[in-house]
């Protein structure tokens, strides 16, 4: 199996250490970090070239993380971001992909996304 380079950024040290423990045992995962999120720069991101970013977050104080995620998505639109927090037992995944700006692609995209009337 092809290895995945996962950059682990930490707002919650014990959570990030837990994630590092779990992922450290997985053969096909090449873990980079953990690094403290507030000290991490987009320049470092360019140097590390991860396949994805995993953020161990503090859900009560998300402003800094949200800004950082927004910057990643702006400068590295094809880089998936995964957030794990302690307040909710879910993993949130942000991905984006680009399509040609044609009406057919736009309409297909709209139809392919789920309707909220049927839950999401």
């Amino acid at each position: 199996m092809e290895s995945r380079r996962v950059l682990l950024l930490s707002v919650q040290p014990l959570l990030s250490e837990s994630l590092a423990q779990v992922l450290g045992r997985v053969e096909a995962v090449d873990l980079i970090g953990p690094y403290v999120l507030k000290d991490y720069t987009l320049t470092q991101l360019a140097d590390e070239k991860p396949d994805m970013v995993l953020i161990a977050e503090q859900e009560d104080e998300r402003e800094e993380e949200t800004r950082f995620v927004a910057r990643i998505l702006e400068y590295y639109p094809n880089l998936p971001v995964i957030q794990v927090g302690l307040n909710s037992s879910v993993i949130r995944v942000y991905t984006s992909h680009t399509l040609p700006a044609r009406s057919a692609d736009l309409i297909d995209t709209i139809h392919s996304l789920p309707s909220r009337q049927h839950g999401c």
């Binding site: 014990l14 959570l15 250490e17 837990s18 994630l19 423990q21 779990v22 794990v84 037992s89």
Partner: peptide, 16 residues
């Protein structure tokens, strides 16, 4: 702890 992923990591930390 009801957070399964965190708990799994904690198992690793403590077992070490």
């Amino acid at each position: 702890d009801d957070h399964a992923l965190f708990r799994e990591g904690l198992v690793g930390i403590i077992s070490a």
